[in-house]
Computed example of a mutant assay.
Amino acid sequence: MPVNHDRYDDAYLSEILETTRTIAMVGASAKAERPSHGVLAYLISCGYETFPVHPGLAGGEILDRKVYSRLADIPAPVDMVDVFRNSDAIPALADEILALPRLPRVVWLQLGIRNDEAAAKLEAAGIKVVMNRCPAIDRPRLLGR
């Protein structure tokens, strides 16, 4: 049954947030005022193993986490790819994700980010997709903390 990307069932989001252990954040920022920085800090505080991805910051650190240039550079498989990129960048990112040796279970596009064509392509490969949502908003609402 296809997922309704206009309204997600709480059980769908809860299952994702409860079973995810490792998260790659594409578009992570070292700037504390950026939303991606705050979301990364929150996810770390919740106990998720996180991998910031940002080509311009690769080799450095954000919140004591090594930054990677691209998803393929992360040395471990990830459960979720959390994305802070423009909606127009999502098709190319979907191709990058689908080329990984081990696919993530979930691709989560942050607030304001939606690309239905890329979502359909990812879902056809068995990857769950969430669009225009934030795990730092949904997790405390659904799971507490």
Score class of each variant (00 low, 15 high):
M1R: 10
M1E: 15
V3N: 01
V3L: 13
V3P: 04
V3A: 09
V3E: 00
R7N: 08
R7T: 05
Y8I: 11
D9F: 05
D10G: 07
A11K: 09
Y12I: 07
Y12F: 14
L13Q: 00
S14L: 02
E15T: 12
I16D: 03
I16H: 01
L17R: 02
E18L: 11
E18C: 04
T19A: 04
T19G: 09
T20H: 01
T20V: 11
R21L: 11
R21T: 08
I23G: 00
V26W: 00
G27S: 09
G27Y: 03
A28V: 11
A28P: 03
A28Q: 04
A28E: 06
A30R: 11
K31M: 15
A32R: 13
S36I: 04
S36D: 07
G38Y: 07
V39F: 11
A41Q: 12
A41S: 08
A41T: 14
L43H: 01
L43I: 12
G47P: 06
G47K: 09
Y48S: 03
Y48W: 08
E49V: 14
T50C: 11
P52D: 08
V53C: 01
V53H: 02
H54R: 09
H54E: 13
G56K: 13
L57F: 13
L57E: 06
G59C: 06
G59A: 13
G59S: 12
E61A: 12
E61H: 14
E61K: 09
I62C: 08
L63S: 10
R65G: 05
K66F: 14
K66T: 15
V67K: 03
Y68N: 02
Y68T: 03
Y68C: 07
L71S: 05
L71T: 03
A72Q: 15
A72T: 11
P75W: 11
P77N: 14
V78E: 02
V78Y: 00
D79T: 12
D79N: 02
M80C: 06
V81N: 04
D82Y: 05
V83P: 02
F84V: 01
F84Y: 07
R85P: 11
N86S: 08
A89E: 06
I90F: 06
I90A: 00
A92V: 15
L93G: 00
A94K: 08
D95W: 06
D95N: 14
A99C: 12
A99E: 15
A99L: 07
L100P: 00
P101W: 01
R102A: 10
R102P: 10
L103V: 10
L103Q: 01
P104E: 03
R105H: 02
V107L: 07
W108N: 00
L109W: 02
L109K: 05
L109V: 01
L109R: 00
Q110A: 07
L111P: 04
L111C: 09
G112S: 11
G112D: 08
I113F: 04
I113W: 06
R114I: 08
N115Q: 05
D116N: 09
D116T: 07
E117G: 15
E117Y: 13
A118G: 07
A120T: 14
A125L: 15
G126H: 10
V129H: 12
V130C: 06
M131S: 02
N132L: 03
N132R: 12
R133M: 10
P135T: 10
A136Q: 05
A136V: 13
I137A: 15
I137Y: 04
D138L: 09
D138C: 05
R139K: 15
R139F: 03
P140N: 08
P140Q: 15
L143V: 03
G144E: 10
R145Y: 15
